[in-house]
Design a binder for these strands. Structure first.
Lengths: 334, 334
DNA sequence: GTGAAAGCGCTAACAA
DNA sequence: TTGTTAGCGCTTTCAC
């Protein structure tokens, strides 16, 4: 990489002259400016980012910590973050906590050494079950702002972007009930994380309000989803509705129904949290609760960048943005 | 963030003493060392990464450019890269080219300013169709090594990690033929990228060798996969096998078969490039061609880090590693 | 209009 | 054993 020094030497001027010329300073003469710029262009000069970061005490880099990159929703949020960050001249350093508290702590620690200006993260499962939040508070007190999305810790003071999980399943369940479904099962493989719990509660409330009994099928890591759904159908012949808290179980619920001569949606309606690209995996296509993942990511990035630009201005004035889900009807519901 | 300067001041010693003490230099007295370390620990001192990078002229950061984060395979490779990089003390800056040549160029340009020590990337679709490779060559000539994976440019001299795409579909097709399948269709939504073409050729060769006619269903962006598969089944009643170049069409091929009273795998066998977690989306589960994505990512990271450590040593001595696929049988094939 | 010098935080060669 | 100094690449104040 060419440096200012080298350009200065070749031109027989001082380093500061070159720097100013490149930054269009009025101090420098028209002619000199032109000469400098030409040479710089010919060498494809680009100011060294590291030096700039050191000088300006900010990196224009955001640390993103996500629990699981193979989760379609989280990947999509990451996409949204990346795009929005780029628009504002920021890069993102990605860490995958893999649902582990330790890895989450490590990542936070490791990047809190000047590598990034702030964080965007969704909390690891283990962190939520152990209810640990000190590492977040510490990071914030070190002057590094955090924006949490989806799985958030309400006891940490920071900006947040969340989904209306409770209402989403509440409404989805109600819509099934409105179509005369009576025996609706809730299927979830995320019952131990915050959003999973909220979704279950939304379902429960809707069912109880209508005087209907609730039934929950919990799928654990390592379980065979197809087997569990199969057994469910075998045991309870009168199931006529499924609300799924994750994308996999909704798809499986539809495809497996046919093994039991249940027509979808005539005999059984299925709706689940998912995205368009996954909904085509079932025949008929799954009616989904869309979370607008990209928008969530973009919003999180906006909040962080705003805070970074404001300096300490908006201290103690934190936003919680709720991005509403949308029920997108396909052929798996009436 | 605490700096050496502040620690030095508080201890009444010089900056270099503090630096040496923290780096366990033998030069510094036992006692001083202890005092320094204690104070540093109490302040949770961490050396400023940016200053270190500037000083040592390397960032311990890898730029990763992937075409599509929502592609399960690519996301999994990213996971592998991240983990391996972390093991070696590297962070990753992720850019998503979104299959765009321009964004790919921009990312390369933008990070080639000292932000990263090298790149790991898979080539964007547009870049492949336009067959552009100059931006890669330029980056390399600037002293930033590149490792390409999956979709690679053979004309660029750099390390590569690829899949045995041709053999994978060749073998998969052969295995269907061995079970007396005669009318096997190849379905692909990636026929315009390098790996897609190779996969199609593997299928073609296997079919032609056996004197069987070939048939390819191409699915374009924006097409309704379910509709296209449906029409295919409607028109050609005797289809008894499907080889899919991507994960979606394989899953759809299975789930849709039932609409035509075709039993899987009795009447029709389906095999496709995919991963375990997606294969459960079909009933019965899809027999998959596993690509070992995490391993690919890890290998790519290893190659890059090796090269970074070797300096210019292994110049002009580039590796192409082939990570063999594995055919994992499920219930969608005999 | 141009240049010298300080300083961001750190390491390391050299001096004391 | 400890301190001084230079320098990584850059911006910016201040002097000329």
């Amino acid at each position: 990489m060419v440096t200012l020094k080298q350009l200065a030497k070749e031109l027989g001027v001082s380093i500061s002259t070159v720097s100013k010329a490149l930054n269009n300073s009025e101090e420098i003469g028209e002619e000199t400016r032109k000469k400098v710029k030409e040479l710089a262009a010919s060498y494809n000069y680009k100011p060294n980012k590291v030096a700039l970061s050191l000088k300006q005490n900010r990196t224009k880099t955001i640390g993103v910590i996500i629990p699981d990159i193979l989760n379609h929703f989280l990947a999509k949020v990451l996409f949204g973050i990346e795009r929005e960050a780029n628009l504002h001249g920021y890069n993102i350093i990605t860490c995958i906590s893999n649902e582990s508290l330790q890895k989450e702590k490590d990542s936070l620690q490791l990047l809190a050494n000047g590598s990034v200006d702030g964080f965007i993260l969704s909390i690891a499962e283990e962190t939520q079950t152990k209810n640990e939040i000190n590492h977040f508070k510490e990071t914030i007190s070190q002057g590094l702002p955090i924006v949490m999305f989806d799985r958030v810790a309400h006891d940490v003071k920071c900006d947040k972007v969340i989904v209306d999980d409770f209402e989403a399943t509440y409404n989805a369940t109600k819509s099934l009930i409105a179509k005369k479904r009576k025996h609706i099962v809730f299927i979830s493989n995320i019952d131990n994380i915050s959003v999973g719990k909220l979704r279950e509660r939304g379902y429960n409330k809707a069912m109880l309000e209508e005087g209907l009994g609730t039934q929950v099928l919990r799928i654990k890591k390592g379980d065979d989803t197809q087997q569990k759904v199969k057994r469910l159908y075998k045991k309870y012949k009168d199931i006529d509705g499924v609300v799924s808290a994750d994308s996999t179980s909704g798809v499986v619920a539809i495809n497996m129904a046919r093994d039991f001569k249940k027509k979808v949606p005539k005999d059984i309606s299925v709706v689940g949290f998912s995205s368009k690209s996954v909904s085509v995996h079932s025949v008929p296509k799954l009616t989904i609760i869309r979370q607008h993942a990209k928008k969530i990511g973009a919003k999180a990035a906006q909040l962080l960048i705003e805070r970074l630009n404001n300096g300490a201005a908006s201290k103690d004035d934190y936003t919680t943005k709720i991005v509403k889900t949308t029920l997108v009807k396909s052929k798996s519901t009436l």
